[in-house]
């Protein structure tokens, strides 16, 4: 089994890694915002329920959540309900949305009250205030913690293999059956490249937003 063949197999695995990563991000970013609004709700029961839910999701290992979401509906209804891949996406989206919601919450709650009040006395509506005053400040505040979380997500995709979704690590491990260990070590190169691109991207964004200070 040659280098090219292994590389090809790993790239196939990487595609799944990327899909899990991208789908999770696209779905969890907005869902996290909804959850953060829930946890900041002035209606106490809503905020308690949401905070309790976030505590559960953040308190249980993601690996376990993937397993539960894949197997439990099947155990209840007798047949597998979700495809393996969909189960992974559902578990990841819920998990990451909860982490993101806490980052959003920190970002939003960190905005000084004076910003809202200044906007209010200038006659801005709530929506105008959010859109023109608050949003850019929140983005700046959450960029660094978001960068961390997104990089963690890249590596968490490896958990998909607990329900046999073949991502890059699993693709490499398939070679172990042939007594080949090096493909597993070789995957690190792909992760590093992936994370490297993201690091550059976040660095670029941070620089783009460095013209103001919050």
């Amino acid at each position: 089994m040659g280098f090219l063949e292994v590389t090809q197999a790993l790239l196939d695995g990487l595609w799944n890694t990327f899909l899990i990563f991208a789908l999770t991000l696209v779905l969890a970013l907005p869902l996290g915002l909804v959850i953060s609004f829930g946890s900041m709700s002035k209606i106490k029961p809503i905020s308690y329920i949401v905070k309790f839910f976030v505590w559960i999701i953040r308190g249980v290992p993601l690996m376990l959540q993937v397993i539960i979401i894949y197997y439990v509906p099947g155990m209840l209804f007798g047949v597998p309900v979700l495809s393996r891949f969909v189960a992974v996406i559902v578990a990841f989206v819920i998990n990451y949305a909860c982490y993101f919601s806490e980052i959003y919450r920190g970002g939003i709650e960190g905005i000084p009250r004076g910003q809202y009040e200044a906007a209010q006395v200038l006659g801005m509506t709530k929506w105008e205030t959010f859109r023109t005053v608050i949003l850019m400040q929140v983005i700046k505040r959450i960029l660094a913690p978001m960068g961390n979380e997104v990089i963690t997500l890249v590596k968490d995709t490896a958990l998909a293999r607990v329900i046999m979704v073949v991502e890059i690590i699993q693709a490499a491990q398939n070679f172990a059956a042939y007594g080949l260990m090096w493909p597993l070590f070789y995957t690190a190169v792909f992760y590093l490249a992936f994370v490297g691109v993201l690091t550059l991207l976040f660095g670029y964004l941070e620089k783009k937003l460095s013209y103001y200070k919050v």
Partner: peptide, 24 residues
């Protein structure tokens, strides 16, 4: 809310802590 906003626009307030919008 919009009636209050009409009244707000008739009044002006300068804060102790300026409260400028930092991104502008």
């Amino acid at each position: 809310e919009s009636e209050i906003r009409e009244m707000i626009l008739r009044m002006g307030l300068v804060f102790q802590s300026f409260n400028l919008f930092p991104q502008y």
